[in-house]
């Protein structure tokens, strides 16, 4: 097992290398640079800036320089937030995004999973139709619509929850962004769980469990759900990577200092190092969560073996 994990992690290095290379040259192809403002800077100032940030050197040299620093886990200075390095920016924002994403993920799994199981047990009955209709709504309504509505109702009209701000991650501040993030995930998880649960409940081994007088809990949870959760797990890998690396919309609407905003800000400001940093972070999360999913699979299903 350890050998498998090590192999996968080592195998990720060429992947990340490729991603870094492609995105490094892609962002350089985009017209403009980090210091091109509406009112151009003086030539002398520009020259100095370019020199400090090595932008006057040939592109391949900049690339090698960047590779060297990334290999040492140093993502370099930010071109836009002049007083910060990318590492400093991420150290502040990433934990916030992870906390938000992880909470939303757990909420999606528990609520979505429960709804899915309930719907499957009441297949083609009113409960089932209600849950599935709600799930369809959850998937179709975009979060930039959900967020303002929730803020308006719960924050402005009822005044129960703050409309925005992070406030050091206080519970009341977390509720709205987490719910907004989780809603579409709840919907997807519920649909997936329902589908695989219906199949599992019809399977022969579940019939065996019923024929041997096991309680409904044992039949549903122990024998049906464990197998039915597998497709959900494989969905949650990429979903978790996306959630944990922050959401531009939710962070912007609720004014949360997470990492999601940097995607857009970095790209718009041609902040080369910031864009590269976010790309690398997302790539790492995707690779990591795919690995976690595969390990979870092996844990849940003894037929899957890595050795």
């Amino acid at each position: 097992m350890t050998r498998y994990v090590l192999g996968r992690l080592l195998g990720a290095i060429p992947t990340i290398f490729l991603i870094v290379t492609i995105s490094f040259f892609l962002i350089r192809i985009a017209p403009g640079g980090p210091f091109d403002l509406e009112r151009p800077l003086e030539a002398k100032v520009m020259e100095n800036l370019n020199k400090i940030y090595h932008l006057d050197e040939p592109l391949w040299q900049q690339y090698l320089l960047y590779l060297k620093s990334v290999a040492q886990l140093d993502f370099g200075p930010s071109f836009y937030f002049r007083d910060f390095t990318i590492n400093e920016l991420f150290a502040q924002s990433l934990p916030i995004s992870i906390q938000l994403g992880l909470t939303a993920l757990c909420l999606a799994l528990v609520v979505g999973g429960t709804l899915g199981v309930v719907a499957a047990l009441r297949q083609n009955q009113p409960t089932d139709y209600t849950v599935m209709a709600a799930a369809t709504l959850g998937v179709t309504i975009p979060n930039f619509v959900v967020a303002p509505i929730l803020t308006l109702v719960l924050g402005v009209w009822l005044g129960w929850l703050p409309v925005g701000g992070w406030n050091g991650g206080a519970f009341v501040n977390v509720i709205l962004p987490v719910v907004t993030l989780a809603l579409p995930q709840i919907a997807v998880v519920a649909r997936l769980t329902r589908g695989s649960m219906i199949e599992a409940l019809r399977s022969n081994h579940v019939r065996t469990a019923r024929a041997y007088g096991l309680s409904t809990y044992m039949v549903v949870v122990v024998h049906a759900l464990r197998g039915a959760i597998l497709p959900v797990v494989s969905y949650l890998g990429p979903a978790a990577a996306a959630l944990l690396t922050g959401s531009v919309v939710v962070e912007t609407i609720f004014g949360i200092p997470g990492i999601g905003r940097y995607f857009v800000q970095g790209a718009l400001n041609r902040d080369y190092t910031l864009v590269m940093g976010t790309v690398v972070v997302v790539a790492c999360f995707v690779i990591l969560f795919n690995l976690i999913v595969d390990l979870l699979y092996a844990l849940l299903d003894p037929r899957v073996r890595y050795d």
Partner: peptide, 8 residues
């Protein structure tokens, strides 16, 4: 298929 594939 009559036995649960996930348990011993």
């Amino acid at each position: 298929t009559s036995l649960d594939p996930l348990y011993t």
